[in-house]
Design a protein around this nucleic acid. Structure first.
Lengths: 197, 197
DNA sequence: TCGCTGACAGATATTGAAATCTGTCAGCGA
DNA sequence: TCGCTGACAGATTTCAATATCTGTCAGCGA
């Protein structure tokens, strides 16, 4: 080719995100991606076996990027109750920001996630592991009292579905939302804390 | 008319449910409902100002019927913790049963609820009131310790969204679901209970 | 040899004309 | 008078012809 630039999966993913941003999920085609890279669409299939796998790879990148700050929070030091609260609030904020900043892009992400089931499942499991990490820390610190850490982490994740699952995104902008989040977090924290009399 | 039967809103709703059951939401038309009742479709508009209002009325009936056992549970006597657990499990079971028994009909209900926003909102508020009732009873019994009953009832409702909101219906059949429900209920109960040492 | 091309078959999406539906209303018949 | 009818306008949906896309592969050129 005229350029020294080789066609890598990375470059294809980059171009795919651009195309998605430009055309939206419903309109974006493999031909568009190929055109953006100035190659034939057959070449794209040399690196990704199907459009679905390309979609999944984009979704994975996306979710991993969004997850990064949460990983850091889970790995940090400090009192577990504060960290759990911070972690949950950050998780909510990340999602909420994505909706507000670029609703159309969020819709794309939502649809993308709809069928990238495996990728999303792995992402959720990672989230639960992060919560579990904080809960364990809390037990070690004598702040939490928990029978089954893994199950409780899952329960905390489940209990907060309303504020991180895209299906409920349209509720996030409502004015009563923040106080409802406060009440939910307070309830959950009380559920894991040791009793102080 | 040939029959002594008059055309009442009730009869129209009955017929509408039949038509929905037979044709599904996308195919059911006001003309179909009128045909089922052997009247012109103009007559239906004499009782319901629009197709949307008819849809809403059907949704309301539906939700009210589903809600009945929960009202009874909230009004019952007995220890509040057990009642709250029973209430939540019943709420989940009602929904789950609807999905399993007749998935197509559930899809219809889901789509119906999608745009019957006001009706659904009222229904949710009623649910929260029922939870609040049980929480209040629990405080009176010395079993619960709660700052803000209304807010906590809302938090319990929000925390269980995953198991009563139709958006998550497809997850309800998974084998790990029951144990996750157990963990969630345990967490929430611990969050409202007084500390026993 | 090895990555890319471009033509191809079958699947999917688009489009616009025709059919159907929603909502209205003047008038009929009891 | 009062509820129902049936024809109507405009909105929506259907359907089939057409266009585009996905995924494959034989062959080209470096």
């Amino acid at each position: 080719m005229n350029e020294a630039v080789v066609l890598t999966p990375e470059r294809i993913l980059e171009a795919t995100e651009d195309v998605l941003r430009r055309y939206g999920l419903t309109k974006a085609t493999v031909v568009d991606v190929a055109r953006a890279l100035d190659v034939s669409h057959g070449s794209v299939y040399r690196h990704f076996p199907s459009k679905a796998s390309l979609r999944d790879a984009v979704a994975k990148r996306w979710l991993d990027r969004a997850n990064e700050p949460l990983c850091k929070l889970a790995a940090a030091d400090g009192p577990a109750p504060e960290r759990l609260e911070k972690w949950l609030r950050t998780a909510f904020t990340i999602k909420q920001k994505k909706v507000c900043d670029d609703p159309e892009m969020f819709a794309t992400y939502l649809a993308l996630a709809q069928d990238a089931r495996e990728v999303v499942e792995a992402y959720k499991d990672k989230q639960v592991d992060l919560i579990a990490k904080i809960l364990s820390d809390g037990i070690a610190q004598g702040e939490f009292e928990i029978d089954n850490v893994k199950a409780t982490a899952r329960a905390v994740f489940d209990a907060t579905v309303r504020y991180h699952h895209p299906a409920h995104a349209e509720e996030w902008a409502k004015p009563e939302c923040p106080s409802r989040i406060d009440a939910l977090i307070a309830l959950l924290l009380r559920g894991v804390r040791v009793c102080k009399h």
